[in-house]
């Protein structure tokens, strides 16, 4: 099982933004209105709010993270009942994660990111979503 760093560090975007395909904004439904959050999704730190955010991008809930040709998947992580992280599946079947304000990495499985240094507090994958892979 391996993880590969694929970018320089950046404070300009975070994991949720990266999973959503946005490297220009920091996505988070904070109560202070600092982070970006889709208007049609609840601005609260809950799994439902995160799922709603990805629904606005055309994703739908699905079972598991196995590679399905033609589909792009994302996964939401949770620790102690709160969302912590999101990752996106690449066409290769590997996963890409932006680690907070740090670097992007690629990892073999959704679970593998937790083994990366300083990432143990991501908890575990709790919800997969998929959409037709953009061409």
């Amino acid at each position: 099982m391996s993880c590969t760093i694929t970018s320089l560090d950046s404070t300009l975007y975070n994991c949720v933004a990266w999973a959503a395909g946005d490297s220009d904004r920091f996505w988070w439904p904070d109560s202070q209105g600092i982070g970006y959050w889709p208007q049609n999704a609840p601005r609260e730190v809950t799994a439902n709010a995160f799922i709603s955010a990805f629904l606005t991008l055309g994703y739908e809930p699905c079972e598991g993270g196995r590679l399905e040709p033609g589909f792009e998947k994302i996964v939401i992580y949770e620790l102690h009942g709160k969302p912590t992280h999101a990752a996106r599946q690449l066409e290769s079947g590997r996963w890409t994660s932006k680690l907070g304000k740090w670097v992007d990495i690629e990892h073999d499985t959704p679970e593998a990111v937790v083994a990366f240094p300083k990432c143990a507090n991501y908890g575990r994958p709790i919800q997969f979503l998929r959409r037709q892979r953009p061409t």
């Binding site: 904070d30 109560s31 907070g100 304000k101 507090n121």
Partner: peptide, 15 residues
């Protein structure tokens, strides 16, 4: 702060 929040995405946790 920068070191210990490096991998966090939660603005609440960061702040």
């Amino acid at each position: 702060w920068k070191d210990e929040t490096l991998t966090l995405s939660s603005i609440e946790e960061i702040a």
